[in-house]
Amino acid sequence: MGIGLTMVIWSAIILFLLIVFGYFIGIYNSFIRLKNDIVKSWANIDVLLKQRADELPKLIASVKGYMKHERGLLEGITHARTAFLNAKTMDAKAKADNIISRTLKTLFAVAENYPNLKANENFIQLQGRISGLENEIADRREFYNDSVNTYNIKTESFPDRFIAGLMRLTKKEMFKVAESEKQDVKVEF
């Protein structure tokens, strides 16, 4: 066999090995990216949760003059906000978020019983702003869960699971929404 043919065969082997090696490097890099994307998408939710928490004192200030008989509800929002601000883990924040979302839903539904409040410009603006934030939080929660789902599927599927095993990657928890939050709020008129 001539030197040329040997070089051709070796170049074919090297190219094949490069493809295999490159493929696994690609999987490794995409896990790194996925991990960082999950952290980033949680941070993107956290920003909105913080913005919503910042709006709550203004909301309470604008409604408390009208909703004197809903003290328990307003205190519930205040407690949930405090719980959110003190929460250190993602799980604790998610729990506090569920409570805030549920109580806000009730508050806006109960506000229907107060025509003067409903006509208040400040309340209308705050309601619009908070509802907008709620929608964005829901979207970003969905995005976060999609990212986690992709990550979890990759850690379990072939051949990515070998790389995931070497990187000691484990499944991640999704951002769960409380069942009560999915239900409509009933309001008595």
Binding site: G22, Y23, G26, I27, N29, S30, R33, L34, D37, K40, S41, N44, L48, N135, E136, I137, D139, R140, E142, F143, D146, S147, T150, K154
Partner: peptide, 24 residues
């Protein structure tokens, strides 16, 4: 290899709703 990297990027990235689009 570049297309492989881009394919993985597209595969792994969920579609954002426009109203809640985040920077990046």
């Amino acid at each position: 290899f570049r297309w492989f990297r881009e394919k993985r990027l597209i595969e792994n990235m969920p579609t954002s709703k426009i109203r809640s689009i985040a920077m990046g």
